[in-house]
Each structure stands twice: as C-alpha cells, then as structure tokens.
C-alpha cells in the first residue's frame, strides 16, 4: 500500500513538472494547486490502504481461527492413500474375469489361507463361477467336517460336501491371535467392502511393502512397515513374491499379477452378485427408457388439443349497438 501511494505521488509530481514545463508563466499557481492535489491523493490512498489492510487482516484472522481442517490422526496414522487403478471388473458393463477369479482363488488357497479365513464362502458358490462341480467336490472332500450327533451322541468327522463352508485356519479368534503375536488376521469374505479404498487399498497394501523401512520410521518389534496400512506398522509381512505360485494357465505369477488376481477374487467373495446386478441394472434402464418415451408421447397426445387451440373474442353485436345508442343519448342529454 505504501509503495502504491508513493507511485501515485511520484506520478502526480511528474504531472506537476510537466505542467510547469508547458506553462512557465503560471508557475506559482500550478505549484500551489499541485501540493493541494497531492495531499488529497495521499489521504485517499491512506484511507483505501487502511480499508484494504483491515479487510485482508480480518479474513486472515478468520482463516487462522476457523479455516483449518482438523484431523484426528497424523498422516502416518491415516496411512497413504491408495493409488486409483483402472479395474476392469469394476466397470458398469463388465463382469468378473472368471480366469482371474480362478487364479485368485488359487493364490488364496496356497498363500492367504494359511492365516486368513474365508468363512462366508461355501464350496457350492465356487461351482459355475471358477470351478467345475467335480473340482469343487474334490476340493471339499479334502477337508473334514463335524457330523450330526449319532445314536450315541458322538460327533464324528466326515468328508466335506458342496454345502460346507471353506475351513478356517484357526479354531477361533483367540487361537488366531495366539498364533500371530496378538494380531488377528481378518476374515477375507467381505474385506473389499470393509476397507476404505476397496480393491485399490488391498492391491496397494499387498504390493506396497518397501525393501526396508524408510529412515526415521518407527517400526515396532514384530511389525512390518507398510505405508498404506493405517499406522504403518502391520503384523502381516510381505507374502507375495514373484513366482510364488504356479498358475495352471501359465500366466506369469508376478507379485502384481497375483495381487491383482487375489483382489478380483476377494471382490467376488464380497460381492458375488455384482455380475447379475449390473446386467439387471442395464435391463431396468432399458425398460424404463422405453416407458419414459411412451409417457412423453402420451402426454403430448393428450395435450395436443390444448396446445394447438386458438382463442378468439367476438364481442356480441347487440351489446355494441346498445352502447352506441346509449352514448348518443348521453350526448343529447348533455347538450341540453
């Protein structure tokens, strides 16, 4: 503000100088008026400046008091936001890729299942989405399940059936904690729905383990550093390494390929109805589109006589004659 008023002053001085150069005869006069003008300019500039300083200052003070967003957690406690990936199966018009689901289930069975349960998925749901009936039956029979109590009230073991659920690696949560240093490996049935960021988060978490924690990171004993995990200290170590599993369709089992497949499989586990839901959605849109077009047509049809009518006003001929005669009567009366 000060600089601006100085510039103003300088320019007004320049104007004075120019005036005095052009008209040397009236020098005294111009000089006196110039000083008066300069002082009024100075006063204006000061007023404007003070108002601006006040306005800017009050906004700055208000922002300082109330403008900052408040975070309950530090960025490290929030965890790094996962990268957005263009998932093919998430698109509105795409189904899950059955081959990817099959690979993802293989990764789950060979890698994740040693710690994580998938307790809401029965074998029967695998049939027709990523396995044949015979494969699923063979898989179910690999595990033993409790029978109903027999005549003596004893519970025996029987081979699994299609209606059985996938077995959990631990008997209960306490056993799981005891085996994992106090940390509970979460059930993966609904994990994609249960975590902010869904697919992106799980993919980032699985592939986001650095070679070693960055300098200055505080990693507790028994925990591993992962920037995407809220708090950055995660009990699960990096599990996916290139070539860990051998895919039957000979897809190269890189870390990111396995992570992508397991994420798509877990998304299917959480939302097995997604394919049917998307298809149904398109059908609903198509049917409602036709019905909407029909209703627009019906509306226009019904409104046609109202929209196209023309209104005329024909004043009754008799009434006009009446008025004319009465007017002439009035005139005749006033003349008298």
């Amino acid at each position: 503000m000060l600089a601006r008023s100085c510039v103003r002053q300088a320019s007004s001085v320049g104007a004075v100088a120019r005036q005095s150069l052009n008209r040397p005869a009236t020098r005294a006069f111009t000089n006196s008026s110039g000083t008066a003008e300069a002082s009024s300019v100075w006063r204006n500039a000061m007023t404007g400046g003070a108002a601006t300083v006040l306005a800017v200052g009050s906004i700055a003070w208000y922002y300082h008091m109330f403008g900052h967003s408040v975070h309950a957690m530090t960025p490290a406690e929030e965890g790094l936001h996962p990268t957005k990936y263009p998932w093919e199966h998430v698109k509105f018009y795409k189904t899950y890729d059955a081959a990817a689901l099959r690979r993802g289930f293989q990764v789950y069975r060979e890698v994740c299942a040693s710690c994580h349960s998938l307790s809401r998925i029965p074998y029967r749901t695998l049939v027709g989405t990523l396995m044949t009936v015979d494969e699923a039956k063979a898989l179910a029979e690999e595990n033993e399940y409790d029978t109903e109590p027999n005549d003596q009230g004893d519970i025996e073991q029987r081979p699994g059936k299609l209606s059985d659920y996938l077995p959990s690696p631990y008997k209960n949560d306490e056993a799981a904690r005891a085996a994992n240093n106090g940390a509970l490996p979460p059930d993966l049935s609904l994990i994609v729905k249960a975590r902010h960021g869904g697919c992106d988060y799980i993919f980032s978490l699985l592939t986001g383990y650095p070679e070693e924690p960055p300098a200055g990171a505080n990693v507790q004993e028994g925990l591993n550093f992962n920037p995407y995990f809220p708090g950055t200290g995660i009990a699960m170590a990096r599990v996916l390494y290139d070539g860990l599993v051998e895919y039957e369709d000979e897809t190269p089992a890189t870390t990111s390929q396995m992570a992508k497949d397991i994420v798509e499989f877990l998304n299917w586990a959480a939302e097995p109805e997604a394919d049917e839901r998307k298809k149904m959605g398109w059908k609903v849109l198509a049917a409602t589109g036709v019905l909407f077009a029909l209703s627009v047509w019906v509306k226009r049809y019904k409104w046609t006589p109202i929209k196209t009518r023309k209104l005329f006003y024909n004043p009754p001929a008799i009434a006009q004659k009446d008025i004319a005669t009465r007017l002439s009567e009035l005139k005749a009366n006033t003349r008298q």
């Binding site: 018009y93 795409k94 189904t95 059955a98 396995m131 044949t132 394919d275 398109w282 059908k283 198509a286």
Partner: peptide
C-alpha cells in the same frame, strides 16, 4: 427382451465369464 439383453451382455463380456472358459476345465 431377456434373450436379447443376455446376448448383448455376453458379447460385451466375451471371454470373461465362466461359461466362456469352462470348456478348458470340463
């Protein structure tokens, strides 16, 4: 309508659904 929309859906998702790849395993 159902047959038609299924046909469109399967065309859009050709090669992705189980029925497209199950021959390999059956």
């Amino acid at each position: 309508f159902d047959t038609g929309s299924s046909k469109v859906w399967d065309t859009v998702n050709r090669g992705r659904q189980w029925k497209d790849i199950k021959q390999k395993y059956i």
